[in-house]
């Protein structure tokens, strides 16, 4: 009961211990972070030395272009993880994002092939993407289903709709917008690369420069604290899923431009997207996903696939490496979190 207990001077030594512990943890986190970055650098150095043509301008631009789609998707995933918290089992995650992109691409290509113009087709694709995102938000925020399961279900819905729409065939597409995306360039940089640059800039400014972004991190980092600060947690979490759907739609337009068609199998990108968003955390002092970190990971994954190609290593290996990276990052973050909890 409450019947009066006194305060003690347990104090001083405790404080020192806590400080030492905290310093130890910070040091551990630093080692992990620097270790990961050093590993990245080592892999890149290996490619520079042994992969023929790795450092050529042509090759690097090619990688950036190839990374545009992955990048846009990874931003969507990152925003969901920021807003939902990076808890591995209960935190935010959007497994449907790649399938959503496939569906949006199918909608976009089908409408174009039916003769609807660019404007209408783009609006429809974005509408579909955001609707799928809203469905995720409804399942996660409205119905309280674990994001892992909710978005897995929505993944199947989106994939099923894509198949229904395209009958599992390639739907060819061409339009003025696609023409610009394929062959347009400005200041010697191709349109696809510009898309990545502009999208990255917007995301970085919004998430890291505005109070909106700050609150988004608060919502993911400690929902109760965010709520106590008068922030509407459901709104922010819902927003990230809709944003993720929007990113899927934007990526779908880029993918249609790159392939001049909507093709089945976009779901395979999911692993790369997840790897990019999770890997990005090691670039952050706070061990949280950041847009800048995601950009670096996207480029890293792009360069990894590219380097393997140049070294004539089967591209199937890339999947394995990405999977291993995800495991590693998740293990490290869980470990870091575990030591936090034992305080």
């Amino acid at each position: 009961m409450s019947a009066s207990v006194l305060h003690t001077e347990v104090g001083v030594s405790d404080e020192k211990q806590a400080a030492a512990k905290s310093a130890g943890r910070r040091f551990g986190a630093l080692v992990v972070r620097l270790g990961a970055i050093a590993a990245f650098a080592a892999i890149m150095a290996y490619f520079v030395v042994f992969a023929p043509g790795f450092t050529s301008t042509f090759n690097l631009i090619n990688v950036v272009e190839q990374s545009a789609i992955l990048g846009v998707l990874a931003y969507g995933m990152t925003s969901v993880i920021i807003g939902g918290g990076s808890d591995v089992t209960e935190g935010g995650i959007d497994l449907s994002i790649a399938a959503n992109m496939g569906l949006c691409a199918a909608v976009y290509a089908t409408l174009l092939s039916m003769g609807y113009g660019d404007f209408l087709s783009v609006v429809a694709a974005i509408g579909v993407g955001m609707a799928v995102g809203a469905l995720n938000a409804l399942a996660v925020v409205g119905l309280g289903i674990l994001p892992l399961l909710a978005t897995l279900a929505v993944l199947n819905v989106a994939a099923g709709m894509e198949l229904t729409l395209t009958q599992n065939t390639v739907v060819g597409a061409s339009s003025p917008l696609l023409g610009v995306l394929v062959s347009g360039s400005f200041l010697g940089i191709s349109a696809l690369a510009w898309a990545l640059i502009v999208f990255s800039a917007i995301m970085i400014v919004v998430v890291h420069g505005t109070s909106f972004g700050l609150r988004l991190y608060a919502v993911g980092g400690h929902p109760e604290a965010a709520r106590a600060a008068g922030i509407s947690v459901p709104f922010y979490v819902s927003f990230t899923y809709v944003l993720s759907g929007f990113c899927a739609a934007v990526a779908s337009i880029l993918t249609v431009s790159r392939l001049s068609a909507s093709t089945p199998g976009s779901g395979e990108l999911l692993l790369s997207v997840l790897a990019a968003a999770l890997l990005g955390t090691v670039f952050s002092r706070r061990f949280v996903p950041t847009m800048g970190g995601t950009l670096l990971s996207v480029l890293f994954i792009g360069l990894l696939a590219n380097g393997f190609q140049l070294l004539n290593v089967s591209s199937y290996w890339v999947n394995g490496v990405q999977g291993a990276l995800i495991l590693l990052v998740v293990a490290i973050t869980s470990f870091a979190r575990g030591s936090e909890g034992s305080r």
């Binding site: 420069g209 505005t210 909106f212 700050l214 604290a225 106590a228 936090e340």
Partner: peptide, 26 residues
Amino acid sequence: DRLLVPTATVGEAVFLGHEIGLGPFV
């Protein structure tokens, strides 16, 4: 319960919800 976001800086934690900045920018 210490209702603070663990990954926030002290400044962010103190001003969360009442951020200092210009318009939407902090």
